[in-house]
Design a protein around this nucleic acid. Sequence first.
DNA 1: GTGGTCTAGACCACG
DNA 2: GTGGTCTAGACCACA
Lengths: 122, 122, 122, 122
Amino acid sequence: MLQLNYRDSRPIYEQVRDGLRKLIITGVIPAGDKLPSVRSLSSTLAINPNTIQRAYESLEQEGYAYTVAGKGSFAALPSDVNAGRRQELLEKFDVIVQELKYLGVTASELASRVTGGEEEEK
Amino acid sequence: MLQLNYRDSRPIYEQVRDGLRKLIITGVIPAGDKLPSVRSLSSTLAINPNTIQRAYESLEQEGYAYTVAGKGSFAALPSDVNAGRRQELLEKFDVIVQELKYLGVTASELASRVTGGEEEEK
Amino acid sequence: MLQLNYRDSRPIYEQVRDGLRKLIITGVIPAGDKLPSVRSLSSTLAINPNTIQRAYESLEQEGYAYTVAGKGSFAALPSDVNAGRRQELLEKFDVIVQELKYLGVTASELASRVTGGEEEEK
Amino acid sequence: MLQLNYRDSRPIYEQVRDGLRKLIITGVIPAGDKLPSVRSLSSTLAINPNTIQRAYESLEQEGYAYTVAGKGSFAALPSDVNAGRRQELLEKFDVIVQELKYLGVTASELASRVTGGEEEEK
DNA sequence: GTGGTCTAGACCACG
DNA sequence: GTGGTCTAGACCACA
């Protein structure tokens, strides 16, 4: 379900967070559903519980999840995601688009990639 | 020419590298032109030469610059940029697009953002 | 009457206690009136009776309620509330005011907020 | 400079964070100045560095400080503080005012407490 | 059982 | 020297 790369420079907790975020975004974990518990994930991934919890904290900070002590963490609604997160993504989007254009990718290619992704939805 | 943000979480050498890359991408430094020397940049920015050197190495690794011993570093052609870099950007592009869609941004909004950015080219 | 927010980081028993306190403060439950029984509240809110019990104990400790064995719990008079509670609130008040001023909120704004709140009394 | 209370229910890292925040708010640590290093504070307070760092992270999240890896943490400008923080404080303010009024504190007393605090500014 | 906190000790990246 | 990350293991509060 989640794959980690220890050779990656990104810290483990970010990889876990990004993986969970993707599961939420893709609908694998629907809004409101319970995320795996800190302990279960830590044993599944063979990672220290503290590291997992840090991933959850980070995810909660972004607004993708909320935590209830003694109950667990749950996927939040898209509308609950931090407004700053969206702005941040749009800025990254622009920067990447600019560089891709420099590298020869045309605007129409990118545009079709955006609209074409509607059904492949891997 | 290059502005550093010490409050940014990104390390200085990455900021320098990204700044130089942007200068190349935007055409401020045309392909083939000489990049500022490590020493001049380090004195201009009041930064340790080691840090600048690291930025150049990283930029060279991406393929955005090449170094000629005794001559200096030069901006490379877009076609010389690592193929992996392009692929990497496209993957990041897809990930960002997917999340933005989840957050309610429509495909047409993104498409127009791609094509509309033609002339603003900050 | 009482609404719980499971997404709130505060434990349930604190939410119940705070909710009851607010009902007393706002006069919805006049001093001397009987508070809902532990059992009725636990079934109404679908919460473990132990949790409700804990809320009542906490409320009683503050002086906002007192319990008569075999009769139930009752809302206390404002004068019966712990003197420490008042002092504690005043200290929190000062701390918050200080920070708000630091953040640019003027004293007159806060003063009018105090006096203006007379009739809105949500 | 900072006093901790191990008997307090609030976690240590929050006490440290609140203490640092107060130092910034009161101007003891002017905006832009360096906060004590994680290691120095941890040895001064006889607290684990991880706990101190957590306090710093929390403070940074609120916008009261920013951190530069390898350099240290610094006090931020009041304008950089999270907008949500201000709103949060105003809501707490209202709740406290309401309860204080119930306990017999008049609006004029509170108003003068707000304006009177101008010069005592301990 | 669940998350939250804390300690102790270690290694790494950055400048 | 500084902060950032991770592990291991422990205790507590909550429901």
